[in-house]
């Protein structure tokens, strides 16, 4: 099978850029630790309210961990608990969330926090809030008639 010279050049160029691109993604993921939210912990979705840490949703200061705060959210149709929360600017926060019923989204608009909440699973993401202001949380996975009313708010305030 004959491949035209120009096509060879084109494919070699394309494959080289692809290789560079995938290497960047790989180094970012495995060396710098930029992995998408992939928490493997499970939970009984019918007992969320009595399971730690979801029995006390909200912001909690923690000691001796790689992060300063844990920010716990419980999602259910069609709201988030807490409905509004203040976080000190510059704080290193682990967001921990789950759902009590159907699949919900957990997206903090204007940030990289964006994860699926699925019944039976806990979702986590570590982040630093380094910009002050109000950040809107929206459900970005269809969950029923009130899906577009499902919202919460993170207020990042000067520490």
């Amino acid at each position: 099978m004959h491949i035209h010279k120009y096509e060879k050049i084109w494919l070699i160029f394309g494959l080289t850029t692809l290789l560079v691109f995938l290497s960047v993604l790989g180094v970012s993921a495995f060396y710098l630790g930029n992995q998408p939210p992939s928490c493997l912990a499970t939970i009984n979705p019918e007992k969320v309210d009595t399971t730690k840490p979801f029995n006390k949703p909200g912001l909690k200061k923690v000691e001796g961990k790689d992060w300063d705060y844990e920010l716990v959210f419980v999602a259910s149709a069609f709201n988030y608990n807490p409905g509004e929360i203040e976080v000190p600017k510059g704080a290193k926060v682990k967001v921990i969330a789950t759902t009590k019923d159907v699949i919900h989204g957990f997206e903090v608009a204007g940030t990289n926090i964006n994860m699926m909440l699925e019944p039976g699973f806990i979702s986590e993401f570590e982040t630093t809030f380094d910009k002050a202001g109000e950040f809107l949380i929206v459900c970005n996975e269809y969950c029923g008639a009130g899906h577009h009313m499902m919202t919460s708010k993170i207020k990042v305030v000067e520490a």
């Binding site: 929206v138 577009h148 919202t151 708010k153």
Partner: peptide, 16 residues
């Protein structure tokens, strides 16, 4: 940040 698959909403008057 606008979500897909969502009806019109002002999300409680949020600026974003």
């Amino acid at each position: 940040g606008a979500p897909r698959r969502s009806s019109f909403s002002e999300y409680g008057g949020a600026a974003q």
